[in-house]
């Protein structure tokens, strides 16, 4: 039953996948509550520019991708807080521009061996020992961030203006959250790719939202869903030879469908009683 765990690359994928799904499941709750789904999608697409720059400069795309993701995230925030452009417009401009720059970088780098499909849609074979260390480091940073700023994040998600009035350093927490989000996105790209990252950032919490009433339960269920979908996806994709990133996302989407049906029945029975 566990023969899919035998190959070395699968062990890397499972450990890396577990860590990535753990932090995605946790962060996902705040992305859904703060209505940042589009921000997540924007940052992940913007990372393409950075990854391509890595190929051009022949350095690890992790670092260039991360730099791009953080830069674009902060630009979106800056433009938006200045109030000149709406947030969704800013995201629409920056992520398309960053992707376009990425295509140009790839053109100039003349590398034909770059795994573009893997970058866009995920390739678990890309998780080697070095990537595993990166994932582990990012996981540690995310957990530390959540430990230190959990209550501030909850307050910001609930009511930013009120959080400011009550003395919470709102602006600093907003920027930190974006930086952490960029970190998570970069390592999640190994697993599911740029295009599918937003699924990991949104669906786990959307499932949990349908099944829970309090944020503590929501965090728990969201993380469990992400981890379960990830393990099931990796196992299934190995057994019947499917692309693993896409398999994980399809399983998550299926879980969401089931959870919404369940949530509707649950709420209907509550209103009747």
């Amino acid at each position: 039953m566990f023969d899919w765990l035998e190959p070395g690359f699968m062990q890397n994928a499972v450990v890396g996948g577990l860590l990535v799904s753990l932090i995605c499941g946790l962060l996902s709750v705040f992305i859904v509550l703060r209505r940042m789904a589009f921000v997540g999608a924007g940052i992940s697409h913007a990372a393409f520019g950075g990854v391509a720059l890595g190929f051009l400069l022949q350095v690890d795309p992790f670092w260039t991708g991360l730099a791009f993701a953080i830069l674009v995230a902060f630009l979106i925030e800056l433009v938006q807080t200045r109030g000149r452009v709406d947030e969704d417009t800013a995201i629409g401009i920056f992520f398309a521009a960053a992707m376009a720059v990425g295509v140009l970088f790839l053109h100039f780098s003349r590398t034909y061996n770059a795994d573009i499909f893997g970058i866009l849609f995920g390739n678990i074979l890309a998780i080697g020992p070095q990537q595993l260390w990166q994932v582990t480091g990012v996981t540690a940073i995310v957990l530390l961030f959540l430990l230190l700023f959990y209550k501030e994040l909850v307050f910001l998600s609930f009511d930013e203006e009120m959080a400011w009035v009550c003395g919470v350093p709102v602006q600093a927490v907003r920027y930190l959250f974006l930086a952490v989000l960029a970190l998570v996105i970069i390592v999640a790209i190994y697993l599911v790719g740029i295009v599918l990252v937003s699924a990991l950032l949104v669906i786990p919490a959307a499932v949990a939202r349908n099944l829970t009433r309090h944020i503590h339960a929501m965090l728990l269920v969201s993380t469990l869903m992400a981890v379960a979908a990830n393990l099931a996806g990796l196992a299934l994709s190995y057994q019947i030879d499917l692309p693993s990133g896409a398999t994980i996302v399809v399983i998550l989407a299926g879980l969401f469908f089931l959870a919404s049906l369940w949530g509707r029945r649950y709420k209907a029975s509550r209103t009747r009683s």
């Binding site: 209550k151 307050f155 009550c166």
Partner: peptide, 8 residues
């Protein structure tokens, strides 16, 4: 309790 967060 949120009201206390900034003070904490």
């Amino acid at each position: 309790l949120m009201g206390r967060y900034g003070l904490l």
